[in-house]
Amino acid sequence: MLSTPALVLAIILFALGLIGLLSRRNILYMLLSLEIMLNAAALAFIAGGARWGQVDGEIMFLFILTLAAAEVSVALGIVLQLSHRFRTLDADAFCEMRG
C-alpha cells in the first residue's frame, strides 16, 4: 500500500510550506508556501481516499482546488495593489496597523 508513505510525504510537504511561510518575508513567496501547504492537504485527502477505496478523497480534492483558485485570484490582486502602493513586496513594510 502506498497510502502510508503518501501521508508521510504530505506531512513533509506541509512542514516545508510552513517553514517557507514563516521564514520568507516576500509576500509572493508566502503565497507560494500557502499553495504548497494546500497541495499537501490535498495529497493527504487523496491518500486517505486511496486507502479506503472511497471517492470522498477526490471530491475533497476538487473543493480544495476551488478554494485555491479563489484564494489565488484574490491574493494576487492584493499583491498587485500592495506593490503598487508601497513599491515593495516586503511583508514587514506593510505595518500601518501597528500590529
Partner: peptide
C-alpha cells in the same frame, strides 16, 4: 503521485488547473 495512488481524475485536474491555470496566473 496522485496517478499512482489511483486518482486519475485528480491527477489530470492537478496538471490542468494547478500546473496550468494557477501557475500561469502567478
Amino acid at each position: 503521485i496522485f496517478y499512482l495512488l489511483g486518482a486519475q481524475f485528480a491527477a489530470a485536474l492537478e496538471i490542468i488547473i494547478y500546473g496550468g491555470a494557477i501557475m500561469v496566473l502567478f
